[in-house]
């Protein structure tokens, strides 16, 4: 068993200071890293604009929206591109460079398919009625994570 550091992430010393066998602990510590507020704000604004432009709506549970926006911001910080946070990649930097899953991804642009549930068509059971989300909403709904 070795520490399976995800290829693209270097979160600082804390990620390396943990025993390889403590994978649960590792997951908790790794997830503590928050994306920069600047990137969260960029992705928040992008999400509002793209929802309006594509005629899609945020999830009725805005906690889902908030986590995804933070995930996009995290990838923007780590990789320089808002890679979809709802997929597993063997090689994140390569995927970000390739671009297929950078938000808005090709399936979203071509068919309005967002399995991350950030942009939902009105007929989707999980779609709410809003195309706006504030930074406060994002902070509040992810505060207890």
């Amino acid at each position: 068993m070795t520490v399976q550091a995800s290829t693209s992430f270097s979160f600082g010393i804390s990620s390396f200071a943990i025993s390889p066998s403590r994978s649960r602990l590792r997951s908790v510590i790794r997830a503590q890293v928050e994306p920069s507020e600047k990137s969260v704000e960029i992705m928040r604004k992008f999400s509002e604009q793209y929802a309006r432009r594509s005629g899609t709506y945020f999830c009725v549970d805005k906690g889902v929206t908030s986590v995804v926006i933070k995930g996009l911001a995290d990838h923007k910080d780590q990789l320089g591109a808002p890679l979809c946070p709802c997929r597993h990649y063997d090689d994140k930097p390569a995927e970000a460079g390739q671009g297929f899953w950078n938000c808005p991804c090709v399936p979203m642009r071509e068919r309005k398919e967002c399995h991350c549930m950030l942009f939902l068509t009105p007929d989707n059971d999980f779609a709410g009625q809003e195309q706006t989300i504030t930074l406060e909403e994002i902070k509040e709904s992810t505060a207890n994570m």
Binding site: C59, G63, V64, T65, V67, V68, G71, P85, C116, M117
Partner: peptide, 12 residues
């Protein structure tokens, strides 16, 4: 259940 750290719908 397989999930990723910042996957919103995984919470649901």
């Amino acid at each position: 259940e397989f999930y990723a750290s910042w996957c919103g719908p995984c919470r649901m």
